[in-house]
Amino acid sequence: MTVHNLYLFDRNGVCLHYSEWHRKKQAGIPKEEEYKLMYGMLFSIRSFVSKMSPLDMKDGFLAFQTSRYKLHYYETPTGIKVVMNTDLGVGSIRDVLHHIYSALYVELVVKNPLCPLGQTVQSELFRSRLDSYVRSLPFFSARAG
């Protein structure tokens, strides 16, 4: 089991943070383009899912998987989106994504007056705490470095 990468978007589609651990393939487009493509895909999936659903939804879209990876999605009522790509062996990690939002993003970015909201997070503290939190996850393994 492993964690590939993590995206953090605000409600306007700005990529607040991106980090990667075991990513073997790049999308082949500039990073900025990739964030936009990812946000656009999630935005479309959200509207797709809300139209397709036979019943009223509460949380909405949670995750999707392909033959090689699984994308986990968590959205707060304020529109912050936490997206983590892992391999297929990982189950539901809603609580992990919620922790990244509530204990890391809110505590270290929202409550930090020196971090302007709505732009890429520059805080080194946030970056390193997030990195060590993800590295400490039970499904994060250092295989293939």
Binding site: H4, K24, K25, Q65, R68, N85
Partner: peptide, 16 residues
Amino acid sequence: LSPEQGSSGIEMLETD
């Protein structure tokens, strides 16, 4: 957008 080589498209999409 796959982080791994040789991925298919969406095979399963989960909502509540």
